[in-house]
Amino acid sequence: MHAWLCTEPTGVQALAWTELPTPAPQAGEVLIEIRAASLNFPDLLIVQNKYQKKPPLPFVPGSEYAGVVAAVGAGVTQLKPGQNVACLSGTGGFGTHAIAAAELCLPLPDGFSHVDAAALIMTYATSHHALADRAQLQAGETVLVLGAAGGVGTAAIQIAKTMGARVIAAASSAEKCALCRSIGADASIDYSQDNLREAIKTLTDGQGPQVIYDPVGGDLSEPAFRSIAWRGRHLVVGFASGPIPALPWNLALLKGASIVGVFWGDFARREPRSNAAMMGQLAQWYAQGKIKPVIDRTMPMAELPAAYARMGARGVMGKLVLVN
């Protein structure tokens, strides 16, 4: 097998395409022949030693992937060789093969493409957990999605619309705003050109959004939170812009608003039954055509450094997927 090996987490330049022995699955594990792996923002942070979870060295990055089960270890009865699966294991995806715990593998129904499957779990699970569970989004409410053209943003648009909400998509270019409207957003704000607070005020008749989905942080969080509706919920999803904002607490008091943390990974670990039910609903929505990952482009696995460069330049709209 071959894989992109990280021996020192000093950045993308430290990765090397390396030939490695193809491992055999141990008890409770499966060997997956990888067909597609998506690039997520944590995959960039982890090779820069900036992610909260730091795997032992050396490691193969790539948190989310899909492929075919090549072999199963002792005790694995729910999966069999030849079966199509998707997996979110945190590492291991940027190669030709990976070992994963069988319990982390999602069997794919017929007609579920490897590319879509590799782009589904992290972003859609995060967005569903955020909107349905943490925000308790109700039909008819207005959701403002920041960074709306990215992987979690496009997922949030589709999920919020499926739940009956009105969606305002905020993104950094006219092209990205057009993409958001094409997948269901009711309105858009180009915050590279428009004043965010004034645009929100106009689009909500001065009432503000009931829910703010914020994977960006930085300079956008405070003006968005200042615009929130009474009893609004500001979802803290991530900090793609880099800086972690420091909000004046009096703003939450004045609006009767909530700042709500979203950590899907720990939710899945702590509440596995609830997470399994959520994943089942997402698979059903996919089969019904209600959600579908937005694929920016596919690239050969050998071009991973170029894929990282595109993500680092904020050029990705939706998800970028590496294929073998």
Rank of each mutant, 00 (worst) to 15 (best):
Q193L: 14
Q210C: 06
L235E: 00
D194K: 09
I200Q: 02
A257W: 06
L235V: 04
T202Q: 15
R231Q: 14
I183M: 04
V236S: 01
D219Y: 07
G206F: 05
L220I: 01
W230P: 01
E198D: 15
E198K: 11
S221K: 01
G206P: 03
K201Y: 11
R226Y: 12
G261M: 05
A229H: 02
A257F: 07
V216A: 07
F267K: 07
D190N: 15
D205G: 06
G256Y: 11
P215A: 07
R226K: 13
L196C: 04
P223W: 00
S192N: 08
S188G: 14
R270G: 02
D219L: 13
R231N: 13
A229C: 10
A268C: 11
F225P: 00
L251S: 03
V260N: 04
A252K: 08
D205I: 10
I259K: 09
V216E: 01
R270V: 12
F263I: 08
S221Q: 07
G217C: 06
R231I: 00
S241T: 03
V262K: 05
Q207D: 03
I212P: 03
G232Y: 04
D219I: 04
P223M: 04
F225N: 10
G232M: 13
S258M: 01
L253T: 12
Q207R: 14
S188A: 15
E198A: 15
L251A: 10
I228D: 06
W249R: 00
G261E: 05
V237R: 04
A224C: 09
S221P: 00
D194Q: 15
K255Y: 09
N250K: 10
A185G: 11
R226L: 14
I189G: 02
W249F: 13
S221I: 05
P243D: 08
P215C: 03
D205C: 12
R197N: 09
A185T: 08
L235G: 04
S221R: 00
D194E: 15
R269Y: 09
L247S: 03
A268W: 08
Q210F: 03
F239I: 02
G218L: 04
G242K: 05
L254W: 10
C180G: 10
Y213E: 04
Y191P: 05
L203D: 05
L220M: 08
K201G: 12
W264K: 10
K201D: 14
F239K: 01
N250A: 09
D194I: 05
Y191A: 09
T202C: 00
I189S: 05
S192H: 11
Q210H: 13
I228V: 13
N195T: 12
A252G: 12
W230V: 11
Y191C: 10
L251P: 08
Y213H: 11
R231L: 13
A224W: 02
S182I: 12
I183T: 07
P223K: 02
I228Y: 01
G184Q: 11
L220H: 02
S188H: 12
A185P: 10
F263W: 08
R197V: 09
D186G: 10
F239H: 02
I200M: 02
K201N: 13
H234K: 06
W249K: 02
I244W: 01
P215L: 00
V237T: 00
L251C: 11
